[in-house]
């Protein structure tokens, strides 16, 4: 049973698309994502005797790919130094000197399902995400869009959980401001 599974061509056929999407949603680069699939399958094939069959094959492959993605992000950060300096606190602009809200947040009325169904809204959301500073955006998307756990993200970006929480806070502040400006506050609903 296990032997029959041990065929990398079959892995490619059955899990290649899935692995590709997994990498693509985290790396946003089709060529890179495709290389990740190749590297993952190669590494899996070379180490296939380590597959014990106590998880599904797909889970095992994804586990291998996850490490490769983390390695890649770590290398890239060292290479380009996309740091988001913590010393400069962008949240100050949202609050007055005494720490109260600069623009009083009002409540949003729409429910998330209805918003999601609205293609126009999704475009605004993408637009707002694209305006976040690079590191904030990468971390925020990995957390909220692909649903990775904090440990994975901290590992990849070499940050502490506290730093991650600060970045998430900043991203949320910026995003809700942008969404309010371009949707909830200004948009006339039909």
């Amino acid at each position: 049973m296990v032997d029959k599974q041990m065929n990398p061509k079959l892995w490619l056929k059955e899990h290649g698309d899935y692995l590709f999407r997994y990498a693509l949603s985290r790396l946003h680069d089709t060529e890179l994502a495709s290389d990740m699939v190749q590297e993952t399958l190669l590494a899996a094939w070379r180490g296939h005797e380590r597959f014990k069959g106590d998880s599904t094959l797909r889970t095992w492959l994804v586990g291998i790919m996850k490490h490769k993605i983390i390695d890649h992000i770590r290398k890239e950060i060292r290479h380009r130094d996309i740091s988001d300096r913590l010393e400069h606190d962008p949240t100050s602009t949202y609050f007055s000197e005494n720490g109260s809200w600069q623009d009083s947040p009002s409540a949003w009325r729409d429910n998330p399902e209805a918003l999601w169904d609205n293609q126009e809204f999704r475009q605004v959301l993408q637009e707002c995400l694209s305006h976040l500073p690079e590191k904030q955006r990468n971390v925020f998307e990995m957390r909220e869009l692909t649903g990775d756990d904090s440990e994975t993200i901290c590992n990849a970006y070499d940050i502490t959980p506290t730093h991650l929480h600060v970045l998430m806070h900043r991203a949320r502040l910026a995003l809700q401001t942008c969404l309010h400006k371009h949707w909830f506050g200004g948009h006339t609903k039909s």
Binding site: L115, W116, E144, L145, Q176
Partner: peptide, 11 residues
């Protein structure tokens, strides 16, 4: 607002 955003990302 944050809860609404969380709901959207869940979708």
């Amino acid at each position: 607002r944050l809860a609404t955003m969380a709901g959207i990302f869940e979708q």
